[in-house]
């Protein structure tokens, strides 16, 4: 009896795999395009692409909290900024080499994320949002005021790019490929995370936290681990950020920086893997192009926020998917 049901029902739902051949081909083409990008575009676009990759790692990490955990953080820039400050400070002033400075930055930031998580996860919902915002503003204030360490409003400069395996990363193409590798690793690991048993539990705590507790899941611990994990990937983005700019300023810790990340997640589609990447492309391009013509990035950012939330609350990726489904469904 059970054998029969097993054979008929265990096969994975067919809908998911219907287009898998086409899908793999598309992903392969996209991969080749990404790798080959520096071969056919100028420095400006290569640098733009590097910035997008960095922003995308940041948005993906924030998406773990916002999209998969249902925990809307408005202070995620804390981890990007902190990691960048750690790396810059220990390299330029603390006398560490690149490898040690990077390790200190990742480890230190992750520990701070653990501590922030302890505080912020005393609440959920809007309370969590307010506490993360307040915590990040405190860090921002420290970066501004504690000038003897952070150099205040002047920021920390003098950072250089590392030379992994002796490869010089100072050229735009080399740095782009370096970022692409890191992005690839982050993307895959975060994708695995969201699909894993733990990731399923995390989504459960987003949708029905009480039920999850009744089923035996430690909701608090699941959220805290995710917070720390997201903090770690935020730190990875911060490391790339400071390598790219060779400089770090308190604005990287500001509410604007956190908001840009959150906008990328929401605009692209929270709780999807592609969403934050698409959102990052949108935000970074807007920021670069708009600031070339108008000096009003903040106002534009605000307007984009309003437009997205009011007219496309589900985000670009799910919105387009829905339209695509309707289109292909209608064709049949």
């Amino acid at each position: 009896m059970t054998d029969v049901t097993d054979n008929t029902t265990i096969a994975a739902p067919p809908v998911e795999r219907r287009n898998s051949g086409l899908r793999i081909a598309l992903y392969a083409a996209l991969g080749i395009l990404l790798v080959a990008l520096p071969l056919f575009s100028g420095d400006f676009y290569i640098n733009l692409a590097s910035q997008i990759l960095i922003a995308a790692i940041f948005a993906l990490s924030l998406n773990l909290l916002v999209g998969y955990g249902g925990l809307s953080s408005l202070g995620h820039a804390s981890f990007l900024g902190l990691s960048a400050y750690f790396a810059a400070w220990f390299f330029t002033r603390g006398g560490l080499d690149h490898t040690s400075a990077a390790l200190v930055a990742l480890l230190g930031t992750t520990i701070v994320a653990g501590f922030f998580g302890l505080i912020a996860l005393r609440a959920s919902g809007l309370g969590f949002l307010m506490i993360t915002l307040a915590l990040s503003q405190v860090l921002w204030g420290v970066a501004f005021r504690w000038a003897s360490v952070t150099n205040g409003d002047n920021g920390l400069s003098g950072m250089t790019r590392p030379m992994p395996f002796g490869i010089d990363l100072n050229g735009p193409a080399a740095f782009y490929w370096f970022s692409l590798v890191i992005f690839g690793i982050s993307f895959v690991l975060m994708a695995i995370f969201t699909e894993s048993a733990f990731g399923s539990a995390l989504r459960g705590t987003r949708d029905q936290p009480r039920r999850m507790a009744a089923l035996g899941f430690d909701v608090w611990l699941i959220r805290w681990i995710t917070f720390v994990y997201a903090g770690f990937w935020g730190a990875v983005a911060g490391l790339l950020y400071v390598y790219y700019h060779k400089y770090i300023h308190p604005t990287s810790l500001s509410i604007t920086a956190s908001a840009e990340g959150l906008l990328s997640v929401i605009a692209g589609g929270s709780g999807t893997l592609g969403g934050p990447v698409v959102g990052s492309i949108l935000v970074v391009m807007l920021k670069n192009y708009a600031s070339a013509y108008v000096e009003r990035w903040n106002m534009l950012l605000g307007i984009v926020f309003l437009v997205i939330v009011i007219f496309m609350p589900e985000g670009l990726v799910p919105g387009t998917k829905r339209l695509w489904k309707r289109f292909t469904g209608g064709a049949k």
Partner: peptide, 9 residues
């Protein structure tokens, strides 16, 4: 998010 956007504006 809208109140945040408004604050930027």
């Amino acid at each position: 998010l809208v109140t945040l956007g408004m604050s930027f504006i």
